[in-house]
Design a protein around this nucleic acid. Structure first.
Lengths: 296, 296
DNA sequence: TTGTAAGCGTTATCAG
DNA sequence: CTGATAACGCTTACAA
């Protein structure tokens, strides 16, 4: 009978069943290609199971985050993929995770014990360390991301391990934007020119670092090698092309949503596990043999 | 009082009121930076009015588009921002637009009389034509996007007008991907080397064109000038940096959602208007004075 | 002013 | 096994 185009009303169905077949996705910024790719993974996984995705770019705006908590409490979504980092403000989210199905992607939220899907940040750092050590680098400038993110420390930890006991690491922390990579390198060059390699917390900061180094008259990778993180599309196009760590960001999003949705469909609580996906080094032209160290 | 954290149930509210305070967004691919920026505009405008956004990347997949029609008919969303171009398959969408609040962004859907928000594609083409004519170019290779999109023809029309009566235009049509720009230029070079400039339908095709030209031993912009369209972030970073038309894509998304949501809030049908936003030429290093024409 | 009842469209349950 | 009924949580209208 109902093949004259009958479609059950969504609101009534939700009211009756308690489920909306919709999940939320919270990210810092959809226009950031890294998170756009993650969103794509989330949406694909959701669609495979008949779920829709409502997304929210928070920009770390507490107002916008709060609005989302209301959406959750109103039962407008059945679960949440949270990939917006860990602003100290949203500690409230931690409590909520206990009672609301939630998968955390891309970052480990301090104090939140939900299923977490990340890539192997320690391994990423280690691959960079091994690569640089293999090229003879011993003095490395590490341009970390936000200092309150765990990934920032994990990548440093890996770098230390990969570089070995002869390595000497200077650290500085930025905010993942191109300008901050530029600023940090300029500031560093003013006091210390002994490093032969820069490892940046993401590709945008690496680009900023390259800009600062080039402006200073240094050649890449002749004088200084640069390594990024993420492998955004830009990385292959800049000059010199950027050696970087490729994160399986689509997979991160896909896995997070997959875990969430299958748990939802089975009326089963989310396992409080950790999924750690592999990363790999993409070797391009921004890294090369270390120059002999010049005396300061 | 209800200030111990009471939040009205969303499904019940929707069932009763008939409105969900949610709009849909249909785009071809969220991982495409152009559409990600558009999505950001949509979400910002929606959030300003308390609306949520569920998005769907269709990839022009008819199955996924059909699923969306059901979501609409189920009343899960109050309206739709459609920015997924005009695949011939979805003519059905045209009928639906008559009965469902829908704003069309970025493209004019043939036969769909909804509010349409685009940038001024004729003007974009004209700016390119004037720019190239001013540099002495007369023979231009136009690498259009999909031939069934109106924008493809509008930009050509503008180019013709801007170039003036001395201009000679060869045309070829691709699919907006880097590879198609590459392929079209290679094919063209095999039969005709008289053009001194290439105008590509988007930046990705322009990059492909640059690759093909460079591989052929031509210098940019010494031998051939290249102009793109969109001004994606990559455009500023490639070598030589790409002269291109900047579309206000965030504005397109924002305006589309704004129109949709305000109409919804006022229980008023969407005006069947056209909003055409201005574009501008971003002059970079991929265009220069036309070389003296070499004989074939 | 405050309170009660009906109905939105489903689905699950229970009686026939 | 088929068919009527109640309940999901809210809002609006009407009665007290």
């Amino acid at each position: 009978m109902a093949r004259l185009g009958y479609v059950p009303n969504h609101a009534a169905k939700s009211l009756r069943s308690g489920f909306t077949r919709t999940i939320g996705l919270v990210i810092p910024d959809i226009a950031n290609p890294y998170f756009a790719e993650l969103a794509k993974g989330v949406e694909d996984a959701a669609a495979e199971h008949g779920y829709s995705v409502v997304f929210s770019s928070t920009n770390f705006d507490p107002v916008r985050e709060d609005r989302y908590l209301d959406v959750m409490r109103a039962g407008a979504i059945d679960g949440l993929v949270y990939a917006a980092g860990a602003p100290p403000s949203s500690r409230r989210l931690g409590d909520l995770a206990k009672s609301f199905p939630m998968a955390v992607a891309d970052e480990e939220l301090a104090g939140v014990s939900a299923t977490t899907i990340t890539s192997d940040n320690v391994q990423g750092g280690r691959l960079v360390g091994l690569h640089l050590a293999g090229l003879g680098h011993q003095r490395v400038l590490y341009l970390g991301g936000p200092i309150d993110l765990r990934t920032t420390h994990q990548r440093l930890e890996g770098l230390r391990a990969g570089l070995g006991s002869n390595g000497q690491i200077e650290t500085a922390y930025g905010d993942y934007r191109e300008q901050s990579g530029y600023d940090l390198v300029r500031a560093r060059l003013a006091v210390d020119r002994s490093f032969t390699a820069v490892f940046a917390g993401n590709d945008m900061m690496a680009l900023g670092a390259m800009r600062a180094l080039t402006e200073d008259g240094l050649s890449l990778p002749g004088d200084v090698s640069v390594v990024g993180y993420d492998d955004i599309p830009l990385a292959a196009f800049v000059n010199p092309s950027l050696t970087t760590i490729r994160q399986p960001v689509y997979e991160i999003g896909h896995t997070a949503a997959e875990q969430l949705v299958t748990a939802l469909l089975q009326h089963r609580p989310l396992a409080q596990g950790r999924v750690i996906l592999d990363v790999r080094l993409v070797e391009r032209l921004s890294t090369g043999i270390a120059r002999r160290r010049v005396s300061m």
